[in-house]
Simulated scan of single mutants.
Amino acid sequence: MPSLEVPLKLLLFIDKRPSSAEQVRQIRQHIEGLESVIAPVLEVIDVSEQPYLAEHFRLVITPTLIKISEAGRQTLTGSNIISQIDYWWSRWQTEIEAESSDRTQQSVDTTSIAQSTEIIHLSDEIFRLKQLNAEANAKLDFKDRIIAMLAHDLRNPLTAASIAIETLEMGYDPNHERRSRFRPELTVQLLRNAKTQIRSIDRMITDILQAAHGPSVELHIFPKELSLQELCQEVIHSMATKVKDKEQIIRLDMPQDLPQVHADPNQVRRVITNLLDNAVKYTPNGGEVVITALHRTTQKVQVSIQDTGPGIPADKQARIFEESFRLQRDQSQDGYGLGLALCLRIVRAHYGQIWVDSVPQKGSTFHFTLPVYKQANNQQKLF
């Protein structure tokens, strides 16, 4: 902390740039070579180590030299500090001589400065603690809401799966009166329905566990050569019951020469499932969802999932990828506002991008990119 035990104190504020050490050396050497009534004290302050001092003196840039004496304070900034010192030096010496003969002039109270900087430091600490407290309360509130929604939302798929299993059990009970009326196709349909509901439960639990660990938890990515067309077909097949119930059509449009990608199959499946599930959810009954892919560059493949739902307001399109953010219309919908945030993290972990194009009342198209998997000299590489 700077003190004013000498008539003239110079505070030189710097940052951690490589050139700072050389600037300090030049300024110190220049001041030592100047004629002085009373030699000044030069104190070097790194703003990253004492930010409250930088705040106290309202610094904007570095390097900055602040002259402090009983006559007052003066600030010199810019790349030509040495030439500015030369310009002001004789006047500073005159001030020192005048101060020596007339102590009635206004003095700078060192204790006051120390107290002022300490108050600023304490104020910063209080502000930081308030932020931490607000973040902790927000996390607790979010987890409480997640638990409440989980208890509510799990009832639907659990009930549907239970009904399917109980119906199957009745069909294979030799003493049940309806056993003889069971057809093979009904058995297959019930099994598919139970499987779909169980997958829905599994996806909910996965999202909840992801949220419980917070957005900073590390994603484990195990990339390998992957066919997007085959993966998309798998996801479409897993959602067949839901699509059929809404009388919708999912159209897959991918070129035959689409290259393989280098990606984690399980994580990319989560992205496609989340985006496709949203598209089906918001597309009206009897509507169409389109999945397309193109070889965007020699290094990237782009996948797009288009719906004909209500669209997303322009001012909300950037925020929908935030953790737990939900549009007002979605507050009564199933889900937790975690899906798109998770998609963003997965795509970024593959060094890709994800974004949305949307027009209100005309639908939305979500796009994401993945790296191409190529072969060179019979050796497989990621580009």
Rank of each mutant, 00 (worst) to 15 (best):
P310I: 11
N266F: 13
A349D: 12
F321T: 05
Q353W: 08
S364L: 07
S304F: 00
P360Q: 14
G363V: 00
A279G: 11
M254L: 15
L327W: 02
L252R: 07
D257E: 10
L252C: 05
Q256C: 03
Q379L: 04
Q361H: 14
R269K: 06
P255F: 05
W355F: 09
P265M: 08
K316T: 14
L338P: 05
I291F: 01
T365N: 13
A293Q: 07
V359S: 00
A318I: 01
G335S: 09
A318R: 05
Q331N: 08
I320N: 11
G335C: 13
R329E: 01
F325M: 09
T365G: 06
D315Q: 14
G352E: 12
G287T: 03
T308Y: 11
R319P: 04
D315I: 15
V356S: 00
G311N: 00
D257W: 09
A349P: 08
H262M: 10
V268W: 14
T297Y: 09
A293H: 06
L276K: 09
Y373M: 11
P265G: 06
H295Y: 12
A293M: 03
I320F: 14
V372I: 13
A318N: 02
P313W: 13
D264M: 14
Q353V: 12
Q267Y: 01
M254P: 08
D257K: 09
S324T: 08
L344K: 03
T292M: 10
I320P: 06
F325D: 11
Q380H: 10
K374Q: 10
D315E: 15
H295R: 02
